[in-house]
């Protein structure tokens, strides 16, 4: 059974970072650096957001023999979700980027 809890402050931070330039595909590591999250927190969060339909993923074409890279951006539902967030909630997410216990 999939839980449908509201996104945490850190997840909202990720959504806001993606919403800054919605059409642009983003890399996981760059996203983690931007929102100050560790990979162990970021990927479960990305998976949950994708499961909820707020995030779409794609593969960057492989360059030579290097493995392909995963890309992320908001879906239309994701953009609408971010647009509908209360200002206080988005502010809290931005003000506390280092608090990541709930996502670990």
């Amino acid at each position: 059974m999939q839980r449908n809890r509201p996104p945490s402050a850190q997840a909202i931070g990720v959504l806001r970072a993606l919403a800054a330039d919605p059409p642009r595909w983003r890399y996981g590591y760059d996203l983690a650096a931007e929102v100050h999250l560790k990979s162990g927190s970021l990927y479960p969060m990305l998976i949950r957001l994708a499961d909820r339909g707020l995030l779409e993923t794609s593969w960057e074409p492989a360059l030579g023999s290097r493995p392909p890279r995963h890309l992320y951006r908001l879906t239309l539902a994701g953009r609408e979700y971010v647009a509908g967030l209360p200002a206080a909630q988005t502010g809290r997410a931005i003000a506390r980027p280092h608090h990541r216990w709930s996502e670990a």
Binding site: Y27, Y29, S39, S41, P67, R69, H70
Partner: peptide, 21 residues
């Protein structure tokens, strides 16, 4: 996706932290 991302990270320390997480 994690493996592909790791391939683009330089520096043993950063790679270790990313992989451990």
């Amino acid at each position: 996706a994690m493996v592909g991302e790791l391939d683009h990270i330089d520096g043993l320390g950063r790679r270790c932290r990313f992989a451990a997480g």
